[in-house]
Computed example of a mutant assay.
Amino acid sequence: MQPMVTDQTRRKLLRAALFSAVVPVLPYGCALTRRTVARPALVGCAVTESNRYQAVVADSQGNALHTLPLPARGHGVAIHPAASQAVAFGRRPGMFMLVFDYMSGAPVKVVTAMSQRHFYGHGVYSLDGDYLYVTEGDRKTSQGIIGVYDVRHDYQKVAEFSGFGLGPHEVIIKPDGTLAIGVGGVHTYGRTALNADTMRPSLTYMSSQGKILEQVTLGDHHLSIRHLAHDGADTVLCGQQYRGTPDDYPALITMHRPGEEMITLKAEPESWARFNHYVASIAATDKWILATSPPGNCYGIWSKETLELVELAALPDASGVVVQNGVFQISSGAAKVVHERYPAPAETSVVNVQWDNHWSAI
């Protein structure tokens, strides 16, 4: 059994996030004037050279404008659809989420996990911004929970949705307000999987009131569904982590439309091997799908029409990806940002942030 989160731990987390200095970062030492002020465009988590953890607000090129210290390693970030608020979530098994103002860089509130709960690193706001849906788990059993937090009332927890399986990871919201949940199916102690032989992952669709609308599964139960994206319409993209035989390299990305079967993206086994059994961030345009793999130090691009892999590129610690103005922007833990305009050549720039895990676009 994992130890309970004590009140003393909660107080330490609160002090670490709310009373540490919030530092505005000026790229390349430039003076901040009305002419040079850049607007926030990207938010993510980062690691400093001294192995400390941050939430970072950046400009459209991926250079930091504000940094906020985190009490532990962060993972995903949710962006409010109307207000200038965002939430950074602790990496699984996380104990905190930090609410902050991305325009000023000021912390707003730290919410700590309940004593028998932990966070899985992701959450999403309702379309109207009134509620925050967060992937959580029971610390003893890994039973999956969607925690519902009332944004209008200081992020108080008002409900829990369950009954869909073990180990949910990412939750996203579709344009119609339906929640899509990547259910990993894994019972973990800390970060150690305990049920590799019996895991039951799924892609679960849920109403905003907690009703399970549909669940779909993959043929190989060792493919843990982790990360999600949608194309702005009906298609949900799923990135998997393979927990089966180490020498096997199955396909790691699928597409799904409600009421239909899963569709698997295509690549040769040696190409899937480059991903080292793990897909992190996913994004899509009307023609292309891009997915990253930090342990594989690479990213791939697929055609939505043919489902074929069209490009596989090396990038150290390839992490987050978003689409801005039709261009993929990919972050890296090596302080690089790739601007991918496939089929045109990609452009790489050096930035002032060692990006970690995921990106969210404002």
Results as ranks from 00 to 15, higher is better:
Gln2Asp: 09
Asp7Asn: 14
Asp7Ser: 10
Gln8Leu: 11
Arg11Asn: 11
Arg11Ala: 13
Leu13Gln: 07
Phe19Gln: 13
Val23Gly: 00
Tyr28Ala: 13
Cys30Lys: 15
Ala31His: 11
Thr33Glu: 05
Arg34Asn: 14
Arg35Ser: 11
Arg39Phe: 12
Pro40Lys: 08
Pro40Gly: 15
Ala41Val: 07
Val43Gly: 00
Ala46Pro: 02
Glu49Ile: 03
Ser50Pro: 04
Asn51Lys: 15
Ala55Glu: 00
Val56Glu: 05
Ala58Leu: 15
Ala58Thr: 10
Ala58Lys: 06
Asp59Gln: 08
Ser60Thr: 14
Gln61Tyr: 12
Gln61Glu: 12
Ala64Lys: 08
Leu65Trp: 07
Leu65Gly: 02
Thr67Trp: 00
Thr67Ser: 12
Leu68Trp: 10
Pro71Thr: 09
His75Leu: 14
His75Gly: 01
Val77His: 08
Ala83Glu: 15
Ser84Lys: 13
Gln85Leu: 15
Gln85Pro: 10
Ala86Leu: 03
Phe89Val: 07
Phe89Thr: 08
Phe96Gly: 05
Met97Arg: 02
Leu98Asn: 01
Leu98Arg: 06
Val99Gly: 03
Met103Asp: 10
Gly105Cys: 04
Ala106Lys: 13
Pro107Asn: 03
Val108Thr: 12
Val108Asp: 04
Val110Ala: 09
Ser115Asp: 09
Arg117Tyr: 11
His118Arg: 12
His118Ser: 15
His122Val: 04
His122Ile: 02
Leu127Pro: 14
Leu127Ile: 07
Asp130Tyr: 02
Tyr131Lys: 09
Tyr131Met: 08
Leu132Val: 14
Val134Ser: 06
Gly137Thr: 02
Gly137Val: 03
Asp138Val: 14
Arg139Val: 12
Ile145Val: 13
Ile146Ala: 02
Tyr149His: 12
Lys157Tyr: 00
Val158Gln: 05
Ala159Val: 01
Phe161Thr: 02
Gly163His: 12
Phe164Ala: 02
Leu166His: 09
Ile173Phe: 01
Leu179Tyr: 13
Ile181Glu: 05
Gly182Trp: 01
Tyr189Ser: 00
Tyr189Gln: 05
Ala193Tyr: 10
Leu194Val: 01
Arg200Ala: 08
Met206Ser: 03
Ser207Phe: 12
Ser207Met: 10
Ser208Ala: 13
Gln209Asp: 13
Gln209Glu: 13
Gly210Cys: 07
Leu213Tyr: 08
Leu213Ile: 15
Gln215Asp: 08
Asp220Pro: 06
Leu223His: 08
Ile225Tyr: 03
Arg226Lys: 14
Leu228Val: 02
Ala229Met: 13
Leu237Lys: 06
Leu237Met: 05
Gly239Cys: 06
Gly239Arg: 01
Gln241Lys: 07
Tyr242Trp: 07
Thr245Asp: 15
Pro246Ala: 12
Tyr249Trp: 11
Ile253Leu: 11
Ile253Cys: 04
His256Met: 07
Arg257Lys: 15
Glu260Lys: 15
Glu268Thr: 10
Ala273Val: 02
Ala273Leu: 03
Phe275His: 05
Tyr278Asn: 01
Ala284Thr: 14
Trp288Arg: 07
Leu290Met: 13
Ala291Met: 09
Ile301Gly: 00
Leu307Asn: 04
Leu309Ile: 07
Val310Tyr: 08
Glu311Lys: 14
Asp317Thr: 06
Val323Trp: 06
Gly326Met: 01
Ala334Glu: 03
His339Asp: 01
His339Cys: 04
Glu340Asp: 12
Ala344Met: 12
Glu347Pro: 00
Thr348Cys: 12
Ser349Val: 14
Val353Gln: 04
Asp356Trp: 11
Ala361His: 13
Ala361Glu: 09
